[in-house]
Nucleic acid binder design. Structure first.
Length: 551
RNA sequence: GCGCCAGUAGCUCAGUUGGAUAGAGCAUCUGCCUUCUAAGCAGACGGCCGGGGGUUCGAAUCCUCCCUGGCGCACCA
């Protein structure tokens, strides 16, 4: 059982005996400084006490009460202004090894999510060009978050919102059409605001190869449609392929066009009008977002009669709510942060708690090569695609880098650095820990060493500081999963794994596993290593990073 | 001008939502391969946590005012 859970139960039991509730500000966590013991609590300082009573006196009472009823505890110390520092017996920590052996892929799994239904919408890039590195970051975060939330007991549904209606799409068709004509040696200028990428020319060339110059004889509107459709299908196919390659799979691709065609946008606008949340002014239709915390009201339908993106975005979120999700998580590029208040306003206006929408803003990625910046702009057509980057540095390395920063932070992604197999890229450090154990087990098999039964007596041999560090770190895994889930922050897992891997590498250099003093010690250490490898594996799985058996 | 995010060791970044003496890695130095993978380990060096004020037993973390960088502020998508 986890140290935190155990102590929490014991303390609650003690407080209940005294008729006191668990204080809201009470904490229970491993102290930064290991000299203070295994777990520390401020409970004596934050719980109600008689006036004039010193927290240390309260702590002393708790200490006396607990030390008798908790056989798992080796000692309780009181320090500083009234901290309680708990130290467990080695046997408590050793029990984590069989626990990992039993639960295997489920070790660390939690039920804090209590089956809450969560929808994670991510990537959702306009299909106007290939995915670039910035989309990759969003994809990695969304996917890891999905894995973590599921592991923490949520029921998660993933979705890609496809903006397949609107002006950008028309521009895409136009771009291809112009390129097609140019390929036919017709001298027309390329529109300034169109997509200039080489991939547009490729699509036009395919059209030319398939149809010859025949399109030139058909009505322009028809050609534009044809070009748009072809471009859309090609690009979307590319995006799907890139995501698959990046180990990202959305359960549903939600089409904006389908929303419009089904009249759901109009229905939503009618509903807003009915509730007095929308109004006509200057020939346009407005949403009263300013009444729900936004800076100003926002246009839903322009005076030219066309709907804004915001209008269909509201309709889309209405649809999400109708599908009964307890929580909607949207992952956006940070350059869209100005959009958050109006979307939250919409959620609230529609009668839902604004917190039921959580927008994760993923900051910009600076793509560098040897310290020099590579420009990225879909329209200008200069960028390295996500596929290019994956091909060059690998999916594991890319994902791990993306998941090793909190989303709020800007990220420098230097291709030369990420390619290096050094500590500049910790993914190898973590994977190496797993591979080390695997190769060690293979070696044991070669030598005919078997492990036998995993008994407490055997595990009692795991009593060095390095043993205890590893076991305590494994004990923290589920807490880490829960923290990552609670704060919607995958990077906690990444840092945890680096710490666990570090513990293993250190151990490896201090203690020989297969050359230990006697058979029992060898077996005990093999059990320990197998458990560590299992936890590393589980953690990497949450990040969507592979756990190689050899490197 | 208004808003959002960031500012922590020379560099890249953590810091479990208010805890004890602020942590990793890289870089730079010093050591460790005749033994399970050196993609590793040990040690040293390195800090006014952007700055001022406030809140309290206690602040990198909370409130406030400044400074710097990035990004947004459309009847664009």
């Amino acid at each position: 059982m986890r140290a935190k859970i155990y102590l929490e139960q014991q303390l609650k039991q003690y407080l209940a005996g005294a008729g006191i509730d668990w204080p809201a500000k009470a904490t229970l966590e491993p102290p930064k400084n290991a000299d203070f013991g295994d777990m520390a609590s401020n409970i004596a300082m934050v719980m109600p006490r008689e006036k004039g009573q010193n927290p240390r006196t309260v702590a002393e009472e708790i200490r006396t009460g607990l030390i008798e009823t908790c056989p798992e505890l080796k000692s309780i110390d009181i320090a500083g202004p009234g901290f309680l520092n708990f130290t467990f017996k080695n046997s408590f920590w050793q029990a984590v090894v069989p626990e990992v052996r039993t639960r295997q892929a489920d070790y660390g799994r939690s039920d804090v999510g209590a089956g809450r239904r969560v929808q994670v919408e991510y990537v959702s890039a306009n299909p106007t060009g290939p995915l670039h590195i910035g989309h990759g970051r969003g994809a990695a975060v969304g996917d890891a978050l999905t894995r973590i939330l599921r592991y923490a007991g949520h029921e998660v549904h993933t979705e890609y919102y496809l903006n397949d209606a609107g002006r950008q799409m028309r521009l895409l068709g136009l771009a291809v059409w112009v390129r097609y004509q140019q390929l036919c040696d017709i001298d027309i200028p390329f529109p300034e605001d169109c997509y200039k990428g080489e991939y547009i020319v490729d699509i036009a060339r395919e059209l030319l190869d398939a149809n010859g110059r025949s399109l030139l004889d058909r009505p322009e509107a028809e050609c534009l449609d044809l070009c748009y459709e072809k471009a859309m299908n090609d690009i979307l196919g590319g995006i799907r392929d890139d995501l698959t390659e990046f180990r990202v799979e959305h359960q549903n691709w939600f089409s904006e066009k389908s929303l419009v065609d089904a009249g759901k946008v109009e229905t939503t606008l009618d509903m807003l009008l009915e509730k007095g949340l929308a109004f006509e002014q200057d020939g346009a239709l407005w949403f009263r977002s300013s009444e729900f915390g936004d800076d100003k009201d926002r246009v839903l339908r322009k005076s030219d009669g066309l709907l804004t993106y915001f209008a269909s975005d509201i309709a889309y979120h209405v649809d999400k709510m109708e599908r009964g999700f307890d929580l909607m998580v949207d992952i956006w590029g940070a350059d869209h942060h100005g959009y958050v208040p109006r979307m939250k306003a919409a959620i609230e206006a529609l009668g839902r708690d604004r917190e039921s929408l959580q927008v994760i803003l993923v900051q910009l990625v600076n793509l560098l090569r040897g310290g020099e910046q590579i420009a990225m702009s879909t329209r200008a057509g200069q960028f390295e695609t996500l596929a290019d980057v994956c091909r060059e540095v690998g999916v594991d390395a890319s994902r791990f880098i993306f998941l090793s920063r909190k989303s709020d932070s800007h990220l420098d992604f230097d291709l030369e650095v990420v390619k290096q197999k050094s500590m500049d890229n910790p993914v190898y450090y973590v994977q190496y820990a797993h591979a080390r154990v695997c190769s060690l087990m293979a070696k044991a098999e070669e030598r005919g060493i078997t492990t036998g039964e995993c008994t407490p007596e055997l595990l009692a041999r795991l009593d060095t500081p390095e043993d205890l560090t590893l076991m305590k770190t494994m004990d923290l895994f589920q807490d880490t999963v829960e923290a990552a889930s609670r704060t919607l922050s995958p990077h906690h897992i990444s840092y945890y794994l680096q710490e666990l891997a570090g513990g293993l590498h250190r151990y490896y250099n201090v203690h020989h596993v297969l050359a230990a003093a006697d058979t029992e010690l060898i077996q005990a250490r093999m059990f320990l290593f197998q458990a560590v490898a299992r936890v590393v594996h589980n953690g990497l799985e949450l990040l969507g990073v592979s756990a190689p058996r050899r490197m």
